[in-house]
Design a protein around this nucleic acid. Sequence first.
RNA 1: GCGAGAGUGGCGGAACUGGCAGACGCGCAAGACUUAGGAUCUUGUGCCGCAAGGCGUGUGGGUUCAAGUCCCACCUCUCGCACCA
Length: 858
Amino acid sequence: MAEERFDFRTLEPKWQKRWAEEQIYKTEWDDTKPKYYALEMFPYPSGKLHMGHVRNYTIVDAIARYRRMAGYNVLHPIGFDSFGMPAENAAIQHGADPAVWTKTNIAEMEKQLRRLGYSYDWDRTVYTYREDYYRWTQWIFLQLYKRGLAYKKTAPVNWCPTCQTVLANEQVEEGRCWRCDSVVTKKNLSQWFFRITQYADELLEDLKLLEKGWPERVRIMQTNWIGRSEGLQIEFTLEPTGDKIPVFTTRPDTVYGVTFMVVAPEHPIVEKICTSGLVSEEKVREIRAFQERMKTLSEIERTSTEAEKEGVPLGVNVINPFNGEPAQLWIANYVLMDYGTGAVMGVPAHDQRDFEFAKKYGIPIKVVIQNPDHSLKAEEMTEAYVDPGIMVNSGPFDGTPNLEGIAKVAAYAEEKGIGRRTVHYRLRDWLISRQRAWGAPIPIVYCDRCGTVPVPEDQLPVRLPEGLVFTGEGGSPLARHEGFVHTTCPQCGGPARRETDTMDTFVDSSWYFLRYCDPHNDKAPWDPEVVNKWMPVDQYVGGIEHAVLHLLYSRFITKALRDMGYVNVDEPFAALLTQGMVIKDGAKMSKSKGNVVSPEEMIEKYGADSCRLFILFAAPPERDLDWSDAGIEGAYRFVNRFYRMVVSAVPMWQHARSLLPVRPGDVAGMTGALSEAELTEAIARSSLTAEDRELRRVVHTTVKRITADLQERFAFNTAISALMELTNAVYAYREQVPEEKQNALVLAEAIQKAVLLIAPFCPHLADELWSRLGYPQSVHLASWPSYDEEATRAETVEIVVQINGRVRDRLTVPAGIDAAEMQKVALASEKVQSLIAGKQVVKVIPVPGKLVNIVVKG
RNA sequence: GCGAGAGUGGCGGAACUGGCAGACGCGCAAGACUUAGGAUCUUGUGCCGCAAGGCGUGUGGGUUCAAGUCCCACCUCUCGCACCA
């Protein structure tokens, strides 16, 4: 017995094969069960799974398996986000065909996923690079186009010189490309955008629907990204010409304190001033020099908080429409052309940035919000006053508390026609064009006669041609492929050119969860009736890195599709779990650090079940997980310890079976399967020793704890520790109770429930043991174990007696003991008596079932 | 600077509602079995102390019969945002 181990090398493949043959994870819609859609972020087929994937998928698999056993009809699919740069880079570097490269990698990754024993419905696998998928990605583009949600415009866009393509704002992190880390530059190009800004308000507002299901952190990140701000747009007038220059402010209450105005160096009014002869040639040269210098700075340098504010006066004034007073016009580095109107009013007394700027250049400071505590004097101020106060020097608003003033000034401005209330967002439209060939072609044709023409839906997909030549130079291979570029106009039949850009791969991934619901549909991307049954995703699990990117795009696409009537949910993902990273020696695993742990090697050495167990046990899912070689050894030991516990109990199990009545259909000599109910009944009829009852208590408490851990929170680590305690209790029982006195029924119950409980974590081990117990059907089709509340109650409990909050004694008392009785027992304790002798008992606080605290004085 | 999270033994972590701090695992030590043990089973293991006992959840204060948990001030780390007008 001591030698026996779970032979994962033969048994894991055995069960994987059996599951596949019997299709036990195949999911069909079932009206009789509640649905549960468990989803993980599908992988990019890089070729090898890393530990991050394994953690992500093991978490979702445990959830899916638990829900399945708990009676849900579970949808748990997988797919491959298989368009994108790495395939194309492989083509450029090694001459590989991206399609072949991708296919090979997918095959490799599928193999690894199968070796981990995940309970996917493999029939639903989606591959975004296949025609039967990207055809519908193109279809979605056309639907957006039809409704004005996809459009082309020329704009300064982010350009990654390494990836040789444009990027969406979300894909630029601190001025660098999210994939390759190159510094991103600006280019003025005509590109396709999705009008996500039309949904800005709803995307923000509906975060409220996700308050329960999503981490606060992610909701905050999206809120910040959308960056809604309410304010007043005011038109100042350029004194010499009468040109209107609108500014946006969230502080209308400070408008009487304006002493200057700043516009971005790229602001069109600057050009007008320079070419109008309003200012001296010398001034123009000064302005041009400043503009040039700003251009050479990178976005990061220009917008960093540390950069000192600097600017150049334009030598002209603007007029404040509120009081008719002139204010100097400047250009400065700290005003950005692409936020608000590209022009801001300068109120140095009440804005720290304006204050610094004014101090540096000797611009006047005018106090218009008076500090109610100390009277502010402009010349004595060392920083802007930004706290609440009373409006002064503000014409009709003098004496108004400034917080009230915000609304009053805005209303006044609208009434007088000098301003209007507006809302600004930081969110920009989603730039989806990519100058890359390994993606879904944008289904648009340009015709000299008809202009921009969408490809008719019945002509989809616009196929990616085979045999593209990848050189890495001269733009996208698609644009150089004559056969692809030249086509005929779907409207007039004349010669036309295809759009040669493909779509951002984030478009592919912003609807895959819908396709999983109806993956084989070749008439439509999905049948709304089917999708509406499965959606929303009940639990989504993935890394925090998509907090804004994928999760925002998917929310937008879902809302747009909802408005078109193709889906009926407002939000695609009802609940989100952002799992922590897998780290090693305190750092993220990376090749350069040499601390990468390969899942393949771990499976080879310890088996999939041990890997899964360790990953779930070592840390709560949302926290970072420190990989430890010793830790996985421990998991491996537990797998074997559990295995021995069950295998060695088989004779006892058979004995238990023999104690129960023979049922019709039982075959002589076979163990036969014991139902939970049969066992419970038989135990109820038998008499139990104190040890039997104690073991039962542990068994039933464990079921209760693990159920709560899996149902209410994803506390796999404590669930597994409870399972370890149960295992320890079974060993202890068998060690302490002489064999002839051991209760076969109670042991059988313990074994049965233990195997069911471990099934979500170690599916191969569980199924092997389940079959050894004589069950013909997979454990994964069995019901989640139940527990008897009565059996979880202990007969006696240990209570703690404290004196002045310090533990002084421990007493064993009957479980049901009331407060008064507890108090009596506590005070009667010899130890307590000796400690309180000669002291005055001030108070006694009994906490039922837990402790008694005796407060003494003297 | 703003926002979020975290700080508990040698290590990963537990303590969910204020009620025995350190469950469970790793590591370490001892014992049993053994030709052998890097297998297995058992026992011990926060720190100081021979003991009685004392001290212990980042720091300092507070509330409470009772604080890892609540309140106030602060320190450190991680992540996100950052001249957004």
